[in-house]
């Protein structure tokens, strides 16, 4: 941590005019070697991941595991029920009629994948979380509708409060504020 950082500062936050301006700012901070800065936009700005230097989301791998679990569960459940727990002779078909198990296997695969996708996304994002420091910024209520915000977080190794303010000013940001935890 830099010396002149107060203990309870979350970061320096500023508002930008639009997608283009905020993307240029993000590129600037990425190139300057900042890691812990965040961009807040009312909709996903395409190309921002690259501009911030983020790695692609790993969610798909979790979903793949969820789907595989659902598939295995469906197959095991049906096989066990039909061949051992509750044997029924239906229209002369074998107990293990794998063809007939396809629909339920498929549905359970989709169900498990979808749950993994949604709850995995929420867990990776640390949501639900009703309070966060950035909400303290005086114009942040615009962020969900038409405001574009960038926050240099205090935990970044390169963080320096005054330098960040100057940088943001230089990039044409408005409403530059120091946000406390």
């Amino acid at each position: 941590m830099s010396k002149n950082t107060q203990h309870n500062v979350h970061g320096v936050m500023a508002e930008f005019k639009g997608p283009r301006e905020i993307m240029q700012a993000a590129e600037h901070f990425r190139d300057a070697g900042y890691k812990d800065f965040e961009v807040y936009t009312p909709f996903p700005v395409h190309g921002m991941d690259r501009a911030m230097g983020l790695k692609p989301s790993k969610l798909a791998w979790f979903v793949l595991c969820g789907g595989a679990t659902g598939l295995a569960f469906g197959l095991t459940l049906q096989t066990w029920v039909a061949t051992s727990a509750y044997k029924l002779t239906i229209s002369g078909k074998p107990f293990f009629s794998y063809q007939a198990f396809v629909p339920v296997c498929f549905e359970l695969m989709v169900l498990f994948s979808a749950f993994t996708a949604v709850f995995g996304m929420l867990i990776m994002n640390g949501l639900p979380r009703w309070y966060h420091s950035v909400f303290k910024h005086s114009t942040f209520h615009k962020a969900s509708s038409h405001g574009f915000f960038l926050c240099i977080e205090a935990r970044d190794k390169k963080f320096d409060q005054q330098a960040s303010i100057d940088l943001l000013q230089g990039l044409g940001a408005t409403n530059i504020e120091v946000v406390e935890d």
Binding site: M52, G120, M121
Partner: peptide, 20 residues
């Protein structure tokens, strides 16, 4: 759910949406 539109969130969000 305390959504704040952070880009790191959008990233996972868009992925989840695409997968769904």
């Amino acid at each position: 759910l305390g959504w704040r539109g952070a880009n790191r969130h959008w990233q996972n969000y868009e992925k989840a949406y695409l997968l769904l």
